[in-house]
Computed example of a mutant assay.
Amino acid sequence: MRLGMFGVVLLLLVSAGSAHAQQKPPSATAAQAVTGEGVTGTLLRHAQFPSRHVAARNVDVWLPPGYDEATATRYPVLYMHDGQNVFDPSTSYTHVDWGVDEAMTRLIANGHARAAIVVAVWNTPKRLQEYMPRRAITGDTFVPTPGDPPFPTSDIVADDYLTFLVTELKPFIDAQYRTLTGPADTSVMGSSMGGLISAYAVLEYPDVFGGAGCVSTHWPIAGGIVEGYLAQHLPAPGGNRFYFDYGTEAIDAQYEPYQQRIDGVMRARGYRPGADLLSHRYLGATHNEAAWRARIEVPLMFLLLP
């Protein structure tokens, strides 16, 4: 059966792949090693990590080379959404993963990125509800894509998802692993809707997440309402860094005018291209894990500058 454009867009969106009080998270499962073809280095899985705010889901933790030996060393942390797509092709939505484990291994070895811990948070069937920035929506309903039925705003749980990351998952990771805990050493990254929630994480918690990697960010959702929210809630420059990119094929072909406006707003606010703002256009790139894998080193280098 052929899918129309609405069906393809919805499938990709749903299935793709100040001081804040910290509370003790529910007891998490012990980590189990993940091995297999396509996985490089030490990858640990906390299966069905529990939460008081959102549904339980797997959380994968990749440790940089030498972690076990360098017992006095602490590491920056990169949190990534759509975690099943990050390291392992056998769990990836398209059976092609982002290759973050391989890319990080290369970048660390050649000195192009800091050694870091990467925490990959799996998505759930409520991906759209968890990744759609809630405070950007002003009405009781919104239309994700033209032709969609109205979607109830009350179903959006992005704020709960960020509460999970900030008050449950991050404290657990900081307690369980040797991390550097401040915003300068804590970043968040994702693609499509994952790009939106990454930007939203920094807008809402600029003192927790110092950097956002927003890959093929799905700005057109709900008529571009997140664009206006970002313009109104952008942190003052100097404490946070934003990476944006987009391709020119498939859904990504819609993104350029939105991204150009976002870039203009950020430059006008005082963000400096190449310093705390990086925005790339990838000619011929489409909207899938293979495309993001092909350019993954660029945001990793920007977020994890040596």
Rank of each mutant, 00 (worst) to 15 (best):
A285D: 05
T71Q: 15
T248K: 09
V143I: 15
T91K: 01
A28S: 12
T35Q: 09
G224Q: 06
V119W: 05
M132N: 03
F302I: 09
R114Q: 13
R241F: 06
D185I: 03
G211C: 08
L44D: 06
Q232H: 14
A184Y: 09
Q232S: 13
F87A: 03
L303M: 15
A19G: 00
V166L: 06
E69K: 14
A136V: 10
K170A: 11
P125S: 06
A231P: 01
E130M: 11
S198Y: 09
T153G: 07
Y177F: 15
L44K: 10
R127C: 02
L277N: 06
A253T: 07
L303T: 07
Q232F: 04
D252R: 03
V215M: 14
P171Y: 10
Y205N: 11
T179R: 10
G264H: 11
F151Q: 03
Y246S: 12
L78G: 02
M132V: 08
D82R: 01
V39T: 08
V9P: 00
L162D: 00
T105P: 00
G264N: 12
Q22A: 15
N123H: 06
M301S: 15
V54M: 04
T186W: 02
T94Y: 04
D148M: 14
I137Q: 04
V59F: 03
E102P: 00
A55S: 11
Q129G: 03
A158V: 08
Q48A: 15
P183G: 05
